[in-house]
Write a protein that binds this DNA or RNA. Structure first.
Lengths: 344, 344
DNA sequence: CGGCCAATTGACAGCGCAATCATTTACGCA
DNA sequence: TGCGTAAATGATTGCGCTGTCAATTGGCCG
């Protein structure tokens, strides 16, 4: 049996299809009595509008696109980050009856801009969420905004004058992590910086320096290494840092992958964690709990952020665009087993 | 400026819209000359068909749904598995101009069946891919097939009489892994079984026994433990197994998460890997390379499998349904650092 | 009770495309 | 050259819905 259409509902309820349309779309100016009749008919027929027809008629799809850095472009992709984001967006979409289209995207590709423009032209989404680090690249954001598609940036970096941005308190929470390490008695706290392209990790570095300062510890250039966000770079940075003398007793990395790399190196060198060396990361990807010892880290509220973003886009499609600006969803520190009081 | 429509193309090319439609959809019976004209017009206008209009007119969306076990239902979700699957499906979809809708799904939920039926009614996808372990649950598969939506099962378990199934040579490759461990001199090779509900892990257990047999080793009940696919269960099983005397010198787990758990336990107990204990897993999720030492494992060709599945569904929507049956994409053994010759 | 305005409802025209069926063209052969 | 057939092309309808604008209704006031 074919699915019921708006005509069937209208006939059953004894009204015109336009009235049914009004009820379905929660438009004003429908009498309570009429609304009840229509809703009863809808329930009775188990009617649900055909999205394609709606999209065609209104020329905008009930669909949100999530754009993020393509993990398959990397040797050892970091999947946890993405799954977390998808989760929040899916949640909001389901609640609103929207669908989520995922679009991993390689920013090294020459034609990303065109690719996105085409995607938008193709599916006409109600909105687009652009995740960090892509959200900091004009190369990505500009083509999107030029199509007039509502766009929310997920950026642990900074706000933007033109788009609504959802961020987190990277700098503050990183400072807090640093103070936490200091409170455990650590005096030589090293830091592994991440990819310079990513503003987020820059903020974390600033937070690290803030934290040192607030704990009355000096900032030492020799205790900072620069990675590229990958596990491998974490390993190399750790080799470097652990060669210093005296050795740092804690290493705080700008993301979990690098922290996992630090842990690998410590394991390889036979340095006990957390006995001789405390390790802290940032992101709380699944990996953080899968390695041994489980990583003390900063939980990025990624799921909450993408949920908020989706919500904003849904509202926007209903006529309430969100004004530009920065909303901050705070992260929290998850203390696990990779940090302990400083030795001695 | 509004996007060009099929009418614009027809006008520019001096043909009817039906002819344009034929060219766009690669239908036969168009003269080469005409085709060229139309294609030139399409290129000139940068025309791309409106998917909503197509869907409305043909009452089936150019869209594939990927259904998988909802990771957020678990405490420590295993994201790698999912990302790999998404990757292959995305690849095939892009090539065919299809979109991918992801639908994580909690099978413990009472209403999964209805949920899926509604989803299908809602979006009318060209097809659905159901990933293991959901693909082995009638609870999930039946409601789908009842809607006449083409459905491909991804199951490392077994084929099905009614749906096309893409699997892998779990049993054989697990036997090979076992033989490999035996070839390293291991005589006491333990096995960690996974969740009974998952046929795949059952096959791996069979493969383990085959491998022992082929290597002339006895099957010992005491060297088998039963986990539930989670890291935590791997830890517990390892505690059990390592209490045996003499201790096993190799532990082969039915998935990587549990192998990671085994490694955590070994680390905790101060047992050196791979010096005193070799560890092997199965799946080759990203985690396998993120822990130390990197895990020797069986690489599941998940991406290839989901790509194949998507392709089959695309073809199906073009009038070439795939007949039921089982296709096997073989896995391969990735030797990394967690396995070494047996001690002594 | 008549009149007027606002609230409510409906008629109808597309949105852009696929599919059906009718029409035209091309080609082979006698 | 003319006929028959198959190939190529086109005219038209309708998919299910939204948006526009017109028609109707109801309520309130004088």
């Amino acid at each position: 049996m074919p699915r019921p259409t708006i005509d069937d509902v209208a006939t059953l309820a004894g009204v015109s299809i336009k009235t049914v349309s009004r009820v379905v779309n929660h438009e004003p100016n429908v009498r309570g009595l009429t609304r009840d009749k229509v809703e009863k008919a809808i329930a009775q027929l188990d009617y649900r509008p055909n999205p394609s027809a709606r999209n065609l008629a209104s020329s905008r799809a009930r669909l949100i696109v999530l754009v993020y850095d393509d993990p398959s472009a990397y040797e050892v992709p970091s999947a946890g980050y993405i799954i977390n984001m998808q989760e929040g967006a899916l949640k909001a979409c389901r609640k609103a009856g929207f669908e989520l289209l995922i679009h991993p995207c390689n920013y090294r590709n020459e034609n990303v801009g065109k690719e996105l423009t085409e995607l938008i032209g193709q599916v006409r989404p109600a909105g687009i969420i652009v995740a960090a680090p892509l959200s900091n690249l004009p190369l990505i954001v500009k083509p999107i905004t030029e199509t007039d598609t509502p766009c929310v940036r997920l950026s642990t970096g900074s706000g933007s004058a033109k788009e609504y941005t959802i961020g987190t308190n990277d700098r503050e929470i990183s400072a807090e992590m640093t103070r936490y390490l200091a409170s455990l008695g650590h005096r030589r706290i090293a830091f592994v910086k991440g990819n310079r392209q990513h503003k987020a990790v820059g903020n974390r570095f600033k937070g690290y320096k803030d934290g040192l300062d607030e704990s009355g510890l000096p900032y030492l250039e020799e205790l900072v290494a620069e990675g590229d966000n990958s596990i491998g770079s974490g390993e190399r940075c750790a080799e470097d840092l652990l060669r210093r003398s005296p050795r740092p007793t804690a290493i705080f990395s700008a993301n979990d992958d690098m922290a996992a790399g630090v842990l690998r190196t410590a394991n390889r060198l036979g340095i006990s964690v957390p006995g001789e060396l405390s390790i802290a990361g940032c992101d709380d990807i699944a990996l953080a709990q899968q390695i041994y010892p489980a990583l003390t880290t900063i939980r990025q509220p990624l799921s909450a952020m993408s949920e908020l973003a989706s919500l904003a886009l849904v509202n926007s499609s209903r006529g309430n665009p969100h004004e530009p600006g920065l909303d901050v969803v705070p992260g929290i520190i998850k203390v696990r087993d990779s940090t302990a009081p400083a030795p001695e």
